[in-house]
Design a protein around this nucleic acid. Structure first.
Length: 754
DNA sequence: GAGTTTGAAACT
DNA sequence: CAGTTTCAAACTC
């Protein structure tokens, strides 16, 4: 069975912005429940990367709603440890972030394509969230969320879920949506076009998923069929592991749904697979399960499976979940529903409390997709970096209430003491801010901060400015010492304030107001008062905007493409993406699969230029027109003589320019060298005088002196020889004066005046 | 630098 | 989907 795609990451950089459809996973379900696919009608929301979360009983049933769809879990206990693995081949660092002890519910905003791993402590807040759009309130109990990254091409991703240990005597049916059964939620982020959960036996055989207590949420990017390599997400579960447990008995009952969406910016698809009937299988302590790399036979991954908790033989069973990212294995220990689930790789077993989780997807160049989810107690900030996209986001999430259920943050968790409480609107406050070009974000790693701030540091050198996530004009803490890329989480109980550090390129726009008020959810809704987008200079005509950048030092008039009008800007972006989901994607991308050459994503439509002028986007990009171009009279093809001639001329011109540049450089170098060699060696003992001392004034003065001497000789009727002698003598005097002046480091014409 | 040409994007 | 409009960059003089 082809369960692993060798290409995993090739499609990520340019396309990770999209959270597109995942394949519907055919599951044979005993209860007859078929996997449902949500209509692909969700409104695309710009600059957002969803992190969908499924629940056992809820999912985005109203995926068509353009409004906010909030999925709120009130009882879920989530804990995923940030893990980081490194691809041994490419060195790509893939960080699998986890959710840390999320005693808090989480909220998914379908409209803004944000997952708010946040606390919604009160039902009112939930209701408020519901009222905000088309919410989904999910009661989750004992739910486990696994956020994993699909970031490496050619590497299989295997989630191996052993049987969960259910409570003795607890019979669960497929319709029991409030099952206490622990469940896995697998959140994948990446351009997976396929998701194939399979059930793996203890003998490492991978079979079709029959019955799992598994929930899979995948933020998959539906890549163009032409270029998207099939990526298969494999979720395996050890079933009927005779060697592990004689009690293995599988009750393949799956009650699940698959929420699919194809829009790049749609809310995430949710695959919910529940297994009401749980077996009491436990893993043998220390048992190692080898996960076949399948298509990567050279890679053999052995996963250490955690042993069940001895103290909880039945009700608290430690269940291993092994996630293999190629050679990377993510081992997940699942406890009972009442216990937090901690997901950790074998490499990072003691990172169960991280102030910030990081989800890294992609990794072609090691600097691709990173999502920072600070979740220690108040997961208010998500930093997302989208590979290939020029957008990177710091997602500022404000909890509706300061939940008392929040666990104390980890040792590395800190807050901003100066963050004052602020007026918090009902519902989550979200904000996405492009923070850094994709090329500059190299790595995101949790980093302790010496100050009071919780920090996620991206290895950036750009200057940044901190912005409050919510209107907070009165707060101006001193963040000058914060490192770049800092994301500050609000202090528990100190108000719902999140801070994001933005790159220097946006700082200039913030200099007028030190802190820019970022729209809250309510404010964002209210900001819809912008009548028409046409009134805004935020349109496709502006290259800055089209490039996903703020305007800076351009000639815009009445420009709204700045942080001061972030709300309008976001709305404009949303409008553009609604109109064209590809609006902010690079026009020049890879060609079809197998084609190495670049090509225009849409093709040009030139009519008069013959595609041989810079009017043509293909020609401008120095690529030839392709079959998708709709140009008329195209001459921008391989054998075109006009093109060859033009290229020849262009090359010749370029050569000339290079030659001229080289000549100028050489001349400049020579002049500089000459100046260096003629640098005066001024010393009391003499030395070579610089000719620079013989200025024009000096020469003129000297000449005047000589002429004056000549006049004297003439007036006194001196013989010519005597006249010459007098002149030479005067010249000698002049030279002496020049030398004297040079010795004093003075160039004073007056000193040699006669 | 002003005016013209051009084609992409928006708009209808 | 096609035609029109708007716009800014490219180009020409």
């Amino acid at each position: 069975m082809d369960v692993v795609s060798p290409e995993l990451n090739s499609l990520l950089p340019d396309e990770i912005m999209d959270t597109e459809a995942i394949e519907d996973i055919p599951h044979s379900q005993s209860d007859g429940t078929t996997v449902q696919s949500e209509p692909d009608e969700d409104t695309s929301v710009p600059m957002e990367t969803d992190t969908p979360v499924a629940s056992e009983s809820g999912f985005c049933s109203d995926a068509t709603s353009a409004a906010q769809s909030l999925i709120t879990s009130t009882d879920s206990t989530l804990s995923i440890t940030t893990t980081k693995t490194t691809d041994s081949v490419t060195g790509t660092s893939i960080t699998t972030s986890g959710l840390q002890k999320l005693s808090a519910p989480f909220t998914i905003s379908a409209a803004n394509h944000q997952i708010i791993l946040n606390k919604v402590a009160s039902s009112q807040a939930t209701e408020a969230a519901k009222s905000a759009g088309s919410p989904q309130v999910i009661k989750q109990e004992g739910q486990k969320l696994l956020v994993t990254a699909i970031g490496k091409s050619g590497q299989p991703i295997v989630l191996q879920l052993p049987h969960t240990g259910s409570k003795a005597g607890v019979a669960q049916t497929s319709g029991d949506t409030k099952s206490q059964t622990p469940q896995f939620k697998v959140v994948t982020i990446g351009g997976r076009s396929e998701l194939k959960p399979v059930v793996g036996s203890s003998t490492n055989q991978v079979t079709t998923l029959q019955a799992q207590q598994l929930k899979t949420v995948q933020i998959a990017k539906k890549t163009p069929a032409s270029s998207a390599a099939p990526i298969k997400f494999i979720i395996t579960k050890t079933v009927n592991s005779k060697g592990l447990s004689p009690q293995s008995s599988v009750s393949p009952v799956i009650a699940g749904r698959v929420l699919t969406q194809n829009s790049p910016v749609m809310p995430a698809r949710t695959i919910t697979l529940t297994e009401p009937h749980n077996t009491s299988i436990q893993s043998i302590p220390g048992k190692k399960i080898a996960i076949s790399p399948l298509k990567t036979p050279s890679k053999v991954t052995v996963v250490s499976v955690a042993s069940p908790t001895p103290s909880a033989p039945q009700k608290s069973v430690t269940l291993p979940v092994n996630v293999a990212l190629g050679q990377q294995i993510l081992t997940v220990q699942q406890s009972t529903s009442a216990s937090p689930v901690k997901v950790a790789t074998s490499q990072t077993t003691a990172q169960n409390i991280k102030p910030v989780q990081s989800v890294t997807v992609g990794g072609v160049s090691g600097s691709q997709f990173k999502t920072i989810i600070p979740l220690a107690t108040q997961p208010n900030v998500q930093q997302i970096q989208v590979p290939g996209s020029r957008f990177h986001y710091v997602r500022l999430v404000t909890a509706t209430t300061a939940s008392s259920t929040g666990q104390p943050s980890g040792p590395s968790t800190s807050s901003i003491p100066t963050a004052k409480p602020m007026v918090v609107s009902t519902g989550a406050v979200r904000m996405s801010v492009p923070i850094v070009p994709a090329q500059t974000m190299k790595q995101v790693a949790p980093k302790p901060l010496t100050s009071t701030a919780q920090v996620v540091t991206a290895t950036q050198t750009q200057q940044r400015l901190i912005m409050p996530a919510t209107p907070l004009p009165q707060i101006q803490p001193n963040f000058t010492n914060l490192p770049p890329g800092t994301v500050l989480a609000p202090a528990p109980g100190a108000g719902n304030v999140g801070y994001a550090v933005v790159p220097a390129q946006y700082v200039t726009q913030l200099q007028q107001p030190p802190f820019v008020t970022l729209a809250s959810s309510s404010g964002f809704q209210a900001s819809a008062g912008i009548q028409t987008q046409a009134r805004l200079p935020l349109n496709g005509y502006c290259d800055c905007f089209a490039n996903g950048e703020f305007c800076n030092n351009c000639n815009c008039n009445n420009c709204f493409n700045n942080l001061e009008h972030e709300t309008e800007r976001l709305k404009a972006i949303k409008t553009c993406l609604d109109r064209n989901p590809e609006a902010f994607k690079p026009k020049i991308g890879k060609g079809k699969e197998g084609e190495s050459d670049r090509r225009h994503s849409k093709g040009c439509n030139c009519k008069r230029s013959g595609c041989l002028k810079n009017y043509c986007e293909c020609y401008e990009a120095k690529i030839m027109c392709s079959s998708i171009c709709k140009c008329i009279g195209c001459k921008n093809f391989e054998e075109s003589p006009e093109r060859k001639t033009l290229m020849h001329l262009a090359d010749a011109a370029e050569v000339r320019v290079q030659q001229q540049t080289a000549a100028k450089t050489k001349l400049s170098s020579q002049i500089s060298d000459l100046l260096m060699r003629t640098t005066p060696v001024i010393s009391s003992g003499g030395g070579r005088l610089p000719y620079t001392f013989v200025t024009k004034e000096v020469l003129e003065a000297t000449c005047e002196c000589l002429l004056e001497q000549a006049k004297r000789a003439e007036q006194t009727h001196q013989p010519q020889a005597e006249a010459e002698r007098m002149i030479l003598e005067e010249f000698g005097h002049c030279l002496m004066r020049i030398i004297s002046s040079a010795g004093k480091a003075k160039v004073d014409c007056a000193s040699i005046n006669c």
